[in-house]
């Protein structure tokens, strides 16, 4: 087990390295002068002023040196400072990451619970009206992109019905309390949970349908056990096993969904920050964020594997 974890982490390192090199390389080969992004475009900068900026931020050095410096600083725990406003990258990311964690965590929790529940529900009633209705709805949930779902939900529940605020994370006139935060969280979390609900439902339904046809379930039935006991004691836990994998697999799509959802609902999280970084060509911020995203995704994959092993004693790591 320990050996397995160690190996996975060791495999993770080159992946990690590759991602940072790719992103750094992409930014490097991009056409245009990066110093143009430091000052508002209306202000005409002299070439000397631009050179000064280059020297101050170390941009006059070759790529390899800059990448090396960046990597060394990261190992020391320093992600550098933003080009656009000079704030520390690490602190900015931590602040925004907590907002996204709240949003994405809620969405994933909603998605997994409702999705699994609906999956079991439909699997037990295969080919019934409920099954068709919900399977059809899950098809919609997968096909409708989060930005379309987002603007429709914003249009209905915030603009027309006025039940929830149209954006942001806290009220403008008061101090945020738990209640106001939940109030602001409902719509974006709902939008972000649609895809996970649909995915978890389809996955659970499929896996449940496999399990209830298994020999040991027939045996249980033959022994005269009650339906409820067969479903919840014998079938459900086994059907749930492959669904665990989906928890880890959902993470990349949650990150992507968060970019759109946060944009629509002006949620001050990683998604909106990433767009700021991209539009302002804030290289240290971009690198820092990609690093964090890669860490989170790789970490989630590892955790999922381990959780699967804990839940299913048949799995051996070696």
């Amino acid at each position: 087990m320990q050996k397995y974890i160690l190996r996975r982490i060791l495999i993770g390192i080159p992946v990690f390295f590759a991602i940072t090199v790719i992103i750094f390389g992409l930014i490097e080969i991009a056409p245009g002068d990066i110093t143009d992004y430091f000052i508002r475009p209306e202000l005409n900068m002299t070439d000397e002023a631009k050179d000064e900026i280059r020297i101050r931020f170390g941009l006059d050095q070759p790529v390899t040196v800059r990448y090396g410096n960046w990597l060394l600083n990261v190992l020391r725990g320093d992600l550098g400072y933003r080009y656009t406003n000079g704030q520390p990258v690490g602190a900015t990311i931590i602040q925004r990451l907590s907002a996204t964690t709240l949003l994405a965590g809620t969405a994933l929790a909603i998605g997994a619970t409702i999705g699994v529940a609906l999956g079991v529900f439909t699997a037990l009633r295969q080919y019934s009206a409920w099954d068709f209705l919900l399977t059809g709805a899950s098809f919609l949930g997968i096909s409708i992109p989060s930005f379309v779902a987002g603007i429709i939900i914003l249009f209905i529940f915030s603009i027309n019905l006025g039940w929830f605020p149209a954006g942001g994370m806290r009220p403008v006139d008061r101090e945020p309390t738990l209640l106001t935060t939940i109030h602001h969280l409902v719509l974006p979390a709902l939008v972000l949970s649609l895809a996970p609900i649909a995915n978890f439902m389809r996955y659970t339904r499929f896996s449940m349908l496999e399990v209830i046809r298994a020999d040991y379930v027939r045996t249980a039935r033959g022994q005269g056990l009650r339906d409820r006991r067969i479903t919840w004691r014998h079938s459900f836990p086994n059907a749930l096993l492959p669904v665990i994998t989906l928890l880890g697999l959902s993470l990349p799509s949650l990150v992507v969904g968060a970019v759109f959802t946060e944009t629509i609902f002006s949620w001050p999280g990683m998604g909106t920050l990433y767009l700021e970084a991209v539009n302002g060509r804030d290289v240290p911020l971009l690198m820092g964020m990609n690093l964090v995203i890669a860490l989170v995704v790789l970490g989630a994959n590892l955790l999922t594997d381990l959780a699967y092993g804990l839940a299913d004693p048949r799995i051996r790591y070696d």
Partner: peptide, 24 residues
């Protein structure tokens, strides 16, 4: 396959956003 793994684990839209902002 290792390169494929890198691209599969990392949400590709994130890289697309960076690329789209940098390229003409």
């Amino acid at each position: 396959m290792r390169v494929t793994d890198v691209f599969m684990t990392f949400p590709s839209i994130i890289i697309m956003l960076t690329l789209a902002a940098m390229l003409p």
